[in-house]
Structures are given as structure tokens and as C-alpha cells.
Design a protein around this nucleic acid. Sequence first.
DNA 1: AGCTTATCAAGACACTGTGTCTCTATCAAT
DNA 2: ATTGATAGAGACACAGTGTCTTGATAAGCT
Lengths: 190, 190
Amino acid sequence: MPKLWTDTVGEHRRAVREAAVDATARLVAEHGLASVTMSQIAAEAGIGRATLYKYFPDIEAVLIAWHERQVSAHLDQLAHIADQPGSPGQRLEACLHGYARMIRGRPHGADISALLHRGEHVEQAHELLTELLAGLLAQAARSGDVRDDVTPAELAAYCVHALGAAAEMHSEAALRRLVTVTCAGLRSPR
Amino acid sequence: MPKLWTDTVGEHRRAVREAAVDATARLVAEHGLASVTMSQIAAEAGIGRATLYKYFPDIEAVLIAWHERQVSAHLDQLAHIADQPGSPGQRLEACLHGYARMIRGRPHGADISALLHRGEHVEQAHELLTELLAGLLAQAARSGDVRDDVTPAELAAYCVHALGAAAEMHSEAALRRLVTVTCAGLRSPR
DNA sequence: AGCTTATCAAGACACTGTGTCTCTATCAAT
DNA sequence: ATTGATAGAGACACAGTGTCTTGATAAGCT
């Protein structure tokens, strides 16, 4: 039973918390979402099971923490892509392509909502992503690169779901085609 | 605790099996997917828990049976829509609209894959749907209504995922717009 | 009909995972 | 250095699972 103490308590708690989330990430990657248990997480993190309950009230909380870390990293990456110079249309396409690449081969990534009873956090993450895209879409609509007969929010929902197909795409070329098709849906009809 | 419900055994087994699936449907609708247990199903179906194990080896099996019934009904409905007279493009759009209407307000509907470890059956259902759409798309591509620079299978995956956004659409009008946008992505670029 | 066999329903048991309680060991502040 | 706070982990009660066994009932055979 390792105690893994650092010098200060606050730092220690942060370290243990992170170790638990790391362990969760490993277990999810290896055995899938549904089969992860508190017992496994505690064992994998090298702490007692009861101790884990001092950090998280239940598995949902651990999974939410893991998901939040995953999502915020992705959102940061996307925000960085969106901040690159270029026309609104170019930046939008770059963002969509980046998102598709994140999704590829990760069929579980977004389906946590099915496991979590109260999916507040998942919904919030979804909203942040949607807002980011909606902002880009609104800009692109103003510059004429994107249709304006549908609200940016609805277009963003369309984009996120359409690019979810990236999970099934087996090649980089297929992924490109998916982004192309998705972007075609965004263009103004004439 | 009824012992035998009908006169013949074969009929009885079918009746019990159906009652179990019905009970599962009620429980899923009321409490969500993740919290359904064998105990609840048995109680709701009016049989002993151990008896339920004579019909299904575990919860996955029950959920798969429920899902299969759900999906086959939807597929029949879509096949019927696809068989209506009209141009390939019209039939395709009618099908997409029908699918979107099925998805609407059913966020759990397709997310079972996250719960099932070995999602063979779910994948198979997904494949059947994809094949149905791919057939329509191939026809529409031949008649020029749909782009031919992307394979029908990839376009079908795009459609299914894009229309998954229907779960978040709050009005019939929004749903129509979603179908319109999705169809716009399918059209040949010129 | 009467007997035998197959099999259905359900009670009982062992096992796993959960969430809480409690006790000991260690840190932090006075 | 003493005292208070808190982390860690063992222990307990509970819920759900999957299997085994026992008694009851339908189906098949003579």
C-alpha cells in the first residue's frame, strides 16, 4: 500500500486525484467505458478503494473528471486552430478537419452521455464545442462562405454530428472526403 | 407468480420472452439505459429472476433483443418509405426525413453501443441501415442527383451521423432544415 | 390412463462491486 | 511538543449477479 506523499497536502491531493484519472483513462482505453469500476481504478492508481471515495463520490464523478480533461484538451487545440490567420471559411474548414481527426478511431469518445444519468457536464462540453463552431460559422456566414438561411447553432450541431462519422473512417483520405462533404452542406445554395 | 401462461410450452416461452422485452422497454423508457437490471426486468415482467436467466444469459442479451425489435421496426418503416414511387432523389430525401423523425427526441436510441461490450448486433443494425441508404445513394448518384466523387457507403455514414443531430432539434421546421443541409452536402459540386 | 422424461419456475448460495463507518497514522499550526 | 485536522485503509451491510438445486408441470410413450 504505497502512500505516495509529496511535501504539501494540497499537492498530494492533486497528485492522487490525477493518478486516479490517469488510471481511469488507461482502464477506459483498455476495457471500454462500461466495465470500469471503482475497485479497478483504486487498484490501478495504487490507493485503497475507500480512499478513492474521499476524492470522488462515485464512478460517474471519476468518468466526468476524465471526460472533462479529455474535452478541455481538445477544445484548447481547436481554439488554437481557430485562432490561426486566414479567411473565416479556411479557419472553419481547418477546425472541422481538426475535430474530425480527434474523433477518428474513438467511437466511445462522445457516447458517455448514455452512461451518465445526469449528463450536465457532457452537455456543457458539447455546448462549448457547439459555441466555438457557431462563432466561426457566424463569421463565415457574414463573409458569404456559409449559408445564412440556417442559424449557426443548428449548423454547428449538424457539423458535430456529421463529423462523428469520422470514427468509422478508415483512412486519412476518407476523412478528407467526409470534411469536404460536410462543408458542402454548409455552403449557400444558389 | 404464474407458472404457465398458455397451454403449450413453445407458446409460453414466446410469451414470456416478449413480456421480458416489453418490461425492458418500459424500464429503459422510464429510468434510462444504464440503470436497468435483471432483477427489475424480472419483477416488471412478473417472473422470477432465476427464470429470466433461462431466457437471456445477461442484461446485454436482453438489451440486444429490445434494440433489435426497435431497429427492425424502424428499418421496415424506412424500407417502406424507400419503396414509394418517385425519382431516386425524392425517395432518398423522403428516407432521410423519415430517419430524422425517428431519431428526434431519442438521444438514447443509438448510444447502446457504449453500453454493450461486444456491439456486434448494434453494428449489424447500423450496417443494414447503411446498406439501405447506400443503395438509394448509388441509384441517386447514377441519376445525377447525388455526387459520385465519394462512395455511397461513405455518404451513407455521413447521412446517418449528420441526421443524428435530429435528436437535438426542437421543432419540425428545424428538422426540415437539417435534412435540407444534409442533402446539400450530398449534391454534386460544380 | 398411468408412468417416465424433459424442462420450467423459483428458492438458495457464493461472489463481486458499492458506499459508509471507524480506527490508526501522519501532517500542520500554535 | 502538543493538539487538531485529515489522509489511508480495514471492516461491514447491502444490492445485483450468475449458478445450482429442488419441486412442479407438460409432453411422450406403452
